[in-house]
């Protein structure tokens, strides 16, 4: 199962990187650099290296798409950094694949830490901006501050469902459960349902 999770995570990363690469090449503003709120140049280096590695991955996986874009101008680098971050987020979300993701997307150089906010990138779908939290060189959180918008719909590239162990599912702090959600039970089925037990107990 672990091997499968890692494989899926890698696949997700690669495909997201591929999509992001296309988006990145369409970024209009060439002056968008990932600006570090804290940590300065070390973090920028980390992001750039992550971008480079991600770009290499994308190239290998989608040669026809990526090979044409080997000249990494500034805009591409900035966009790819975001893509690398999102790829890392998606990969992290896969079961126990965090180390693989970090290896793929995080520079090994100087282990920077801090929260870094990317500048607003204009894409054909609208503006996009993310912040990335890095702890000891590992991306721990990616937050979209601004999402692209296409036809009134938000377009994000980081809400993909990934394999997850039962023990990893979000668990409520409170011990009390009031409701059960499942495929619809019949009136008769209710009597044998968990919901019936909860309702009788009055929680």
């Amino acid at each position: 199962m672990r091997a499968r999770a890692v494989a899926l995570a890698t696949l997700a990363s690669v495909s997201i990187v591929g999509i992001g690469w296309q988006l990145g090449t369409q970024a209009i503003d060439a002056s968008q650099n990932l600006t570090a709120a804290t940590g300065g140049s070390a973090a920028s280096t980390a992001a750039t290296e992550a971008a480079a590695q991600a770009a290499a991955t994308a190239k290998a996986a989608a040669e026809s798409a990526a090979a044409a874009q080997t000249q990494a101008d500034t805009a591409n680098t900035a966009a790819s950094a975001k893509v690398a971050a999102d790829a890392a987020a998606a990969a992290t979300a896969a079961a126990d694949a965090a180390s693989a993701a970090n290896a793929a997307a995080v520079a090994t150089a100087s282990s920077p830490s801090g929260t870094f906010t990317g500048s607003v990138v204009q894409t054909q779908f609208g503006n996009m901006q993310v912040s990335v939290t890095i702890a000891n060189g590992a991306i721990t959180e990616v937050t979209p501050l601004q999402l692209t918008n296409r036809g009134g719909r938000s377009v994000a590239i980081s809400n993909q469902a990934a394999p997850i162990l039962r023990s990893e599912v979000l668990a409520a702090q409170s011990a009390s459960v009031q409701n059960v959600s499942g495929a619809t039970y019949t009136t008769d089925g209710y009597l044998r349902s968990l919901q019936s037990a909860l309702d009788t107990a009055g929680f």
Binding site: M1, A89, A171
Partner: peptide, 19 residues
């Protein structure tokens, strides 16, 4: 029986983007 979940349903160990 394998589960698939979006990031928002993952324990906030490494909280990524949630819905």
């Amino acid at each position: 029986g394998q589960l698939l979940a979006t990031p928002g349903l993952r324990k906030p160990l490494s909280r990524t983007t949630t819905a």
